[in-house]
């Protein structure tokens, strides 16, 4: 089975050059991502998921932070917000709370979401805020030149650890589960079908959902660590990945060249923020509680 072929079940405009064009701001092409970079692949999967989920695209918003993945918001032909470094999640929280009918997707990188934005991630997960968080994890700060991220595995050479990383790294899926996420999955950019399916799944799942996508940065991470180009990384992913749905997230740590456990690890029912809010307010205030009408078209 060729994992990288997309079936295209919708009608392609006669003047389109690429099946994902309806989902992208074509007037902004070419994009800034390097040859071999995996972010574009994840965007392909995302468009596929949008399509398959039959989501009303007027009601889907994408919020990004800063970094290479942070640029996704700029290319998605949706209501899209390129915010400040690390703050995509709290921005998305305000957006979702003010306009609950929106499907709010946070699309950002590992440095943005887990270093500078780490605090927001754990609190949004704790609240079970109804956000869909997609983290493209290239294990480095790519846009600034390949510095160490909180995800960079031990022994890796980076711009700020030229003699090798020695700090322990975060296991993102374990962190997400421990903080309270309702849905946790991990894929690599090799697993395009599974990734698209996971993305589609979280559109239908209420509460805080998290997908980690391992993605190559051939320009910095792979080059500096003599791990080849984008294609070599695909081969690497294929070789070392093990699909293990329901695996214990604590056993899914990533190393420089060891096994990559992928799959859906967590899919549980927890009341989300709005349900908790409504329940508490109704208990305390009864009929006096007024459902939030935060967004207003006239005022």
């Amino acid at each position: 089975m060729n994992e990288t072929t997309l079936e295209i079940p919708y009608e392609i405009p006669a003047d389109a050059h690429n099946p994902v064009e309806p989902f992208l701001r074509m007037d902004r092409m070419p994009h800034i991502w390097c040859p071999g970079c995996g972010i574009g692949t994840t965007v392909n999967c995302f468009t596929r998921a949008l399509l398959d989920s039959k989501a009303d695209l007027d009601k889907v918003a994408v919020v990004s932070g800063i970094g290479c993945t942070g640029r996704v918001a700029g290319y998605a032909r949706l209501d899209s917000f390129h915010t400040t470094h690390g703050r995509a999640i709290p921005f998305a929280t305000g957006l979702k709370l003010s306009n609950p009918e929106l499907q709010v997707v946070v699309y950002s990188g590992d440095g943005d979401l887990f270093a500078i934005g780490g605090n927001h991630f754990i609190h949004a997960a704790r609240r079970n805020m109804d956000l869909k968080v997609i983290c493209v994890n290239n294990l480095t700060y790519a846009m600034t030149g390949g510095q160490t991220a909180p995800t960079t595995p031990s022994k890796v050479i980076s711009a700020t650890n030229p003699y090798g990383v020695f700090e322990p790294s975060f296991n993102l899926v374990a962190l997400a589960e421990a903080a309270g996420a309702s849905y946790v999955a991990r894929w690599t950019t090799y697993h395009v079908k599974q990734l698209a399916r996971s993305m589609e799944e979280i559109f239908k799942k209420k509460g805080f959902c998290f997908i980690e996508v391992l993605s190559p940065c051939p320009t910095l991470y792979q080059r500096r660590n003599k791990m080849g180009d984008g294609l070599d990384t695909m081969k690497f992913y294929k070789e070392v990945s093990k699909v293990r749905h329901g695996a214990r997230t604590s056993e899914c740590e990533l190393t420089k060249s060891g096994e990559i456990v992928v799959g859906k690890f967590v899919d549980r029912e927890r009341p989300d923020y709005f349900e908790l809010l409504r329940a508490q307010m109704t208990e305390s205030l009864g009929d006096r509680y007024a459902e939030p009408e935060v967004s207003c078209s006239e005022c």
């Binding site: 709290p90 929280t93 957006l95 979702k96 207003c296 005022c299």
Partner: peptide
């Protein structure tokens, strides 16, 4: 940091 950007998300969602 979160408070000061959450309000802006809310504004773009239509809130004051």
């Amino acid at each position: 940091l979160a408070a000061s950007i959450a309000i802006q998300g809310a504004v773009w969602g239509g809130a004051k």
